[in-house]
Design a binder for these strands. Structure first.
Lengths: 215, 215
DNA sequence: GCAACTATATATAACCA
DNA sequence: TTGGTTATATATAGTTG
């Protein structure tokens, strides 16, 4: 702000709003980059401007996705009674962490898959009630990817139909239990300390949380 | 910066770095909130400080996840030749958009599931090769959720084992094709315009993209 | 380690070409 | 609209309890 202390409220005038947006977006990115560099922390920015349904991503889509993957996993960690040892999470090389996540994910997926298959085979119906759809929005991309892959594989693969199968699929009772333990295996206990939300609002900032947010 | 023009480089001294981090984090959040309010855009911040493996999230985990879900879907949209109509994407009520995403997701999942089931039934093996594991890191949370749900359902459900099943599951060839079309059905064509990465670096900022980033 | 306090560096609202 | 310029509001490095 300069020349006048602007009052913190939605700028009605379209031109002004756009101009301000542009200037401040630049300023914000600069600040973020400075913070990243000065303090050596990982950072990315995702900005949905007006009339721009596609977000602007910085420093790159790849970088942002890496960071966000880490975040998307957070709520679950919280739910698991904050058992993660952050020290390790941050200091281990990312590759290592991702590797272990990958392994765990494979395991989880295998088990989930087994259950669905079992359920499908036994009842003959696909039951989406088992899936929490609210948490699955971000799955869309992934599933689309998979469909692409599947499409590719199918075109180079003969699926031989068989009328029956002798395969027996076990229900998941103990698998789930085991999974529970394995999931936390690599982590040390960590005591609680609150961390969200940050202490807001600022001095004269009155935040309207109506609606979503981005950056 | 004040009292001295600080040189833009990692602050070696631990105390200084932490102090700077704290001050600047506050400043950054303030800036973000201002931008949100002044320009009416959705915004969230996710910050991984040093020694803090659990991100600080603003304005809330829920808000951030909503925003990020939108983002996580982006790369796919790009891949789909930028066919999204952003106007609609932003102006439609979030609920509406999420609803359609949800429907699409259900459909995708159903089809993917069908393929896996088919493959499993015919070959008797779970083939993780169909899944792109790099893109699936963010799945972990979701899968864990599902396992929780499954666990719950199982404890109140009797799975009756059957030795055989007459169910025939068709492979997915045309389903995939159909899905492809349906996915884009609700979107208008949109011409290209570049949007990432943003024009960086700033004047004297020399960004080291080695490693990941966050905020 | 932390808050408060400056002195300065930066960001940016209003203006204008 | 887009891009400078300038006057002012803010952010913050360094310093002090």
């Amino acid at each position: 702000m300069a020349r006048k202390k602007v009052k913190l409220a939605y700028i009605i005038n379209h031109s002004n709003r756009k101009a301000t947006y542009k200037k401040r977006k630049y300023g914000l990115l600069k600040k973020i980059s400075e913070l990243s560099i000065l303090c050596g922390i990982d950072a990315c920015a995702i900005i949905y401007g007006e009339n721009n349904p596609r977000a602007e991503v910085w420093p790159s889509t790849i970088g942002a996705r890496s960071v966000l993957s880490k975040f998307m996993r957070l709520p679950e960690l919280e739910r698991r009674k904050k058992m993660v040892d952050l020290e390790g999470f941050l200091t281990q090389s990312i590759a290592k962490v991702q590797d272990s996540l990958k392994k765990q994910m494979e395991e989880n997926q295998r088990k989930q898959m087994s259950y669905f298959i079992s359920h499908f085979i036994h009842t003959g119906e696909y039951n989406p009630g088992n899936v929490n759809l609210n948490d699955l929005n971000d799955l869309t991309t992934i599933i689309d990817n998979n469909l692409k892959e599947i499409e590719g594989k199918l075109s180079s693969m003969e699926v031989v139909a068989e009328e029956e199968t002798g395969n027996r699929v076990e229900p998941m009772h103990n698998h789930v239990g085991v999974q529970e333990r394995e999931t936390n295996m690599n982590y040390a206990m960590k005591s609680d300390d609150e961390h969200l939300p940050l202490d807001l609002p600022f001095d004269d900032v009155n935040i309207d949380t109506n609606g979503l947010w981005s950056i």
